[in-house]
């Protein structure tokens, strides 16, 4: 197995763990933790592809920096949304908040 494949398998493990957690978790914060796992796998995959193939190394690192920035923005917004949900429902669990009311 080549080094590139090993790094991509590690990133795939992060993706699988994140997807599993997203389905398994019942609280919004637990789901946020799973999403962060997946985003980390994406970053690792991009950097490994850039460093170990003939692709542009600088481009891969900058792309991963953008992924990190997006993850930070996403975490900020999810924190605010969780706070609004807790204010309205009294807890942050996903079982009771699937209903839309217009």
């Amino acid at each position: 197995m080549t080094p590139l494949q090993l790094y991509q398998l590690a990133a795939l493990a992060l993706l699988a763990l994140g997807l599993f957690g997203l389905v398994w978790r019942r609280s919004l914060v637990g789901m946020l933790i799973s999403v962060e796992l997946m985003l980390n796998g994406a970053g690792l995959s991009i950097v490994a592809a850039g460093q170990l193939t003939a692709a542009d190394n600088a481009l891969a690192q900058l792309a991963t920096l953008l992924v990190m920035g997006l993850a930070a923005a996403e975490a900020t917004l999810v924190l605010a949304i969780v706070l609004v949900v807790v204010k309205r429902f009294g807890h942050g669990e996903s079982q009771d908040i699937f209903e839309l009311r217009g």
Binding site: V29, L32, E36, A71, L79, V82, H91, E93
Partner: peptide, 21 residues
């Protein structure tokens, strides 16, 4: 940054120990 935000979310939602999770 992100983990500190997650910690804030955990503490501010006061997730009960015996909750759904």
């Amino acid at each position: 940054a992100v983990v500190v935000l997650i910690f804030f979310a955990i503490m501010l939602t006061r997730s009960p120990a015996g909750g759904e999770e």
